[in-house]
Design a protein around this nucleic acid. Structure first.
Length: 484
RNA sequence: GGCGAUGUGACCGAGUGGCUAGGUAGCGGUCUGCAAAACCGCUUACACCGGUUCGAAUCCGGUCGUCGCCUCCA
């Protein structure tokens, strides 16, 4: 069975066929780095991480580009988001950007999100953006008014094709603050003139200013992925106007199709005071930062929670939902751990290999699910079904050969680990404090044994510790010291 | 108002015509020195009203509810 994906642009599920055989070029809209990322961001980027991992699993040579937006997002007050934060923190914009870019990568690394191949920053691609704007002006798709440059939506008849909106049908001018220098209310800025107090500014053919919000993605996608590429991803909440503007700019500028498949992720919701789900967002204040969540839950648990719903659907968050996901995940995690421990002393044989049929079915079900538009809930269900059988086996008194255990572990490691990222490579969790405490406990046991004149046990403890690099010395008969 | 979605059992959440999704919670059981875990079984479903069909949670029409976007947002 081949991979099917739901293409928002065509509004149908269709076979995935990359432009160049064996290669996938993918662009995903990245974060605006002005604050710590929250779980809504986690849903988005973990979802695309799983997509990225699965495409690689299928053997595609994936080039994954995800931008860092560090200029040009305006609040409705007309202020630049990053500037406002900078003013609050009494620091310069680039310090803010640097701080939260690092924070973002910290969070993503902690969540086991594989880094994109390229993480281009908008501020580092001003010339590319200017060049693109110049082309658009030359071709008659854009016009300059007093240092501002706007894209003319009427010059591009297909504007709105992704979100199925018609410019004429939109309530024109509902915003009273429509800038009077626009020819059409729906026209959007490619370049904005910088006010004197605006710190983030660059020289351009139209004077000092900064790029509009949408042009960065078009410019950077073109630079790294070409005029036409395979997958464009992002959050569904950015379908309009952002994604729509990207398409218009890029296709008008390049005379080529922009992205061939559009995959958009559903929002993370939080119940409001009436119990109705609403989007987790900065502005509503109903968010949990990734850092806060990671202080309480393992990254695999957060990933399992996210994977429990389909990427394109919204998912309702609550601490209870996360707890429930954790309980279920733990059953699988523990089974894998027991499996790995059992491998340490299992006989070299194929005993108990009847379960391998279940393993085969699990793989099949898992891959069928993933091939069906990355259906992670069904993929997880396959692993849970396997876990039931594995536990049944592990808790029974039958002998299981090492080869069988290895085969099961391989399935978990590949499907649950490499693809979904919910099964860690290492299920033994080290903790220096705990290790020291265990040694103290053994030393105490040995002292009790000596008191009871059970020298056989006492010596055994000393020898076993010594084998592991722990030395015991007995300065007195009352107390013992140890060191590693 | 326009556009796009959606309404599944106590909760989260898959599922597009007939075959138990899964997870959590609850109840009962097996196992067990205790505890825990694990496994087995079970209960509460497809918003409402009509229609198509041998048969619909699944298709069609209508009603009601909810959400997203239309302004910054992943």
């Amino acid at each position: 069975m081949s991979l099917l994906v739901y293409n928002v642009l065509k509004r149908e599920k269709m076979p995935f066929e990359p432009l160049y055989e064996g290669r996938v070029n993918m662009y995903v809209c990245g974060p605006t780095v002005y604050d710590d990322a929250h779980l809504g961001h986690a849903k988005n980027y973990v979802s695309f991480d799983i997509i990225n991992r699965y495409l690689r699993f299928l053997g595609y040579d994936v080039l994954y580009v995800q931008n860092i937006t560090d200029v040009g997002h305006l609040l409705d007050t007309g202020e630049d988001r990053i500037l406002r934060k900078a003013r609050q923190a009494a620091s310069t914009p680039m310090q803010i950007v640097e701080t939260f870019t690092r924070s973002y990568f910290e969070d993503m690394d902690a969540l086991k999100v594989l880094r994109p191949d390229i993480s281009p920053r908008a501020s580092a691609h001003i010339p590319e953006q200017i060049q693109m704007i110049e082309t658009l002006i030359q071709k008659g798709y854009a016009y300059e008014v007093d240092g501002n440059v706007y894209f003319s939506v009427q010059s591009y008849p297909e504007f709105g094709k992704l979100s199925n909106r018609r410019v004429e049908e939109q309530e024109a001018g509902t915003r009273e603050a429509v800038r009077s220098d626009k020819r059409h209310p729906a026209d959007f800025a490619l370049w904005k003139k910088a006010d004197p107090e605006h710190i983030l500014r660059w020289p351009s053919p139209w004077g000092e200013g900064f790029p509009g919000w949408h042009i960065e993605c078009s410019a950077m996608a073109r630079k790294y992925l070409g005029d036409t590429f395979d997958i464009h991803g992002g959050g569904i909440d950015n379908i309009f106007p952002h994604n729509e503007c990207e398409i218009a700019q890029s296709e008008a500028c390049n005379d080529a199709e922009f992205a061939r498949y559009w995959l958009l992720v559903g929002s993370l919701m939080v119940p409001d005071e009436f119990g109705n789900p609403v989007k987790m967002s900065k502005s509503l204040g109903n968010f949990y930062t990734i850092k806060d969540a990671l202080a309480l839950y393992r990254p695999e648990v957060i990933r399992a929670f996210i994977a429990s719903g389909h990427y394109s659907n919204p998912i309702t968050f609550s601490t209870q939902a996360l707890e429930d996901a954790q309980t279920g995940w733990k059953r699988m995690y523990t089974a894998v751990h027991f499996l790995r421990e059992r491998m340490r002393f299992a006989p070299e044989s194929d005993e108990g290999n009847s379960i391998l049929e279940t393993v085969r079915q699990t793989r099949q079900q898992f891959l069928d699910a993933m091939n069906d538009d990355f259906n992670t809930p069904n993929a997880l269900a396959a692993l849970y079904a396997l876990t039931r059988e594995v536990n049944d086996m592990l808790y029974s008194n039958t002998t299981i050969g090492r080869n069988v255990l290895v085969a099961i572990n391989d399935a978990y490691t590949e499907l649950g680990g490499n693809i979904l990222g919910v099964v860690p490579e290492q299920t033994v969790n080290c903790n220096p404090e705990r290790e020291a405490d265990l040694i103290r406990f053994l030393v105490q046991m040995r002292r009790d044994a000596r008191k009871a004149r059970n020298f056989q046990l006492a010596d055994q403890i000393r020898d076993e510790l010594a084998k592991r690099g722990v030395t015991i010395i007995d300065p007195t008969n009352e107390e013992s010291f140890w060191y590693v």
